[in-house]
């Protein structure tokens, strides 16, 4: 059956409450999921008190501050700090988003930070995205064309043709969408998930690509594509305001149109 409860060794127990920094005037309470695979212990939810005066405006700033000032073992991924690398995707107050583009002031009350849902956790806020990347690789996200490129210039696209792929190609593979999808939670071994499907769509509609049929063939499957039941959590979650749900719907329409 699908997993509706975490396995016993993944259930959250207790947690450490770090003392409030002395003399801090303005503070926020931040509760962070902690898991250390080496300890053999269950994950826990630690409580931190964040001093706002010395902290930047974003959730990522808070994490960096807490790691520097309170607990150096706090582990998370981050790189660009401007919403283009997709490294710091995590579940903040129940919503998958990028820590670097989520302002602390936009979050009400206590801040709760968990890793992306329903993924194996490597440590603290770092999920194992191996399968997610393999799904991206499985849709062959590169140009396939038997017509050789012109010898003296690049393959040309009209402005309209470029505009079609402009938004889907802006995906940063942060995994916020796929890990917000219940179908992906229950069937990620066979369902490709919104991120990989939007990548597939980006190449299916690319005017320079010649493998459209093969790409559609590879998706024509009850699990790979049709586990999407259009609940649109993916579009809701996307921190780049992209629309994977629409991309999937367009693929389904193309599947039908080539038959009838």
């Amino acid at each position: 059956m699908a997993e509706f409860r975490l396995p016993p060794n993944s259930r959250i127990v207790g947690g450490i409450t770090h003392p409030k920094p002395a003399g801090a005037a303005e503070t926020r309470t931040v509760r962070i999921y902690r898991f250390n695979p080496d300890s053999g212990e269950n994950p826990r939810l630690d409580t931190f008190t964040l001093e706002l005066k010395s902290c930047g405006p974003m959730v990522l700033d808070a994490l960096i501050q807490l790691k520097a000032a309170v607990d150096s073992s706090l582990t998370f991924r981050r790189s660009c700090r401007e919403g283009i690398c997709g490294s710091c995707a995590m579940n903040i107050n129940g919503v998958n988003r990028l820590a670097c583009t989520t302002a602390l002031s936009d979050l009400k009350g206590e801040i709760r930070i968990y890793p992306l849902p329903h993924m194996p956790v490597i440590k603290d806020l770092v999920p194992d995205l191996t399968t997610f990347y393999a799904q991206y690789a499985a849709v062959k996200p590169w140009l396939q064309s038997s017509t050789p490129p012109p010898p003296d210039k690049e393959r040309l696209q009209s402005k309209e043709e470029q505009e079609k792929i402009d938004r889907p190609a802006a995906c940063i593979l942060c995994a916020c969408c796929s890990t917000a999808c219940p179908s992906y939670w229950w069937n990620s071994d066979k369902y490709l998930g919104p991120a990989a499907l939007m990548a597939a769509y980006r190449w299916i509609i690319d005017s320079r690509d010649e493998a459209t049929g093969e790409r559609l063939d590879a998706l024509e499957d009850p699990y790979r594509l049709y586990r999407c039941h259009t609940i649109m959590n993916c579009t809701d979650a996307c921190p780049k305001d992209l629309n994977p749900a629409r991309a999937i719907a367009e693929i389904k329409k193309m599947m039908l149109e080539r038959q009838s």
């Binding site: 191996t130 399968t131 990347y133 393999a134 799904q135 690789a137 499985a138 071994d189 066979k190 490709l192 063939d217 590879a218 998706l219 024509e220 499957d221 009850p222 699990y223 790979r224 594509l225 049709y226 389904k252 599947m255 039908l256 038959q259």
Partner: peptide, 22 residues
């Protein structure tokens, strides 16, 4: 086995359109 092999599994079933449409 490689993650890609696990994702590709036994390949696409080449069905699902009919079910979805009906």
């Amino acid at each position: 086995s490689s993650p890609l092999r696990q994702v590709l599994g036994t390949g696409p079933a080449h069905s699902g359109v009919h079910h979805w449409w009906v």
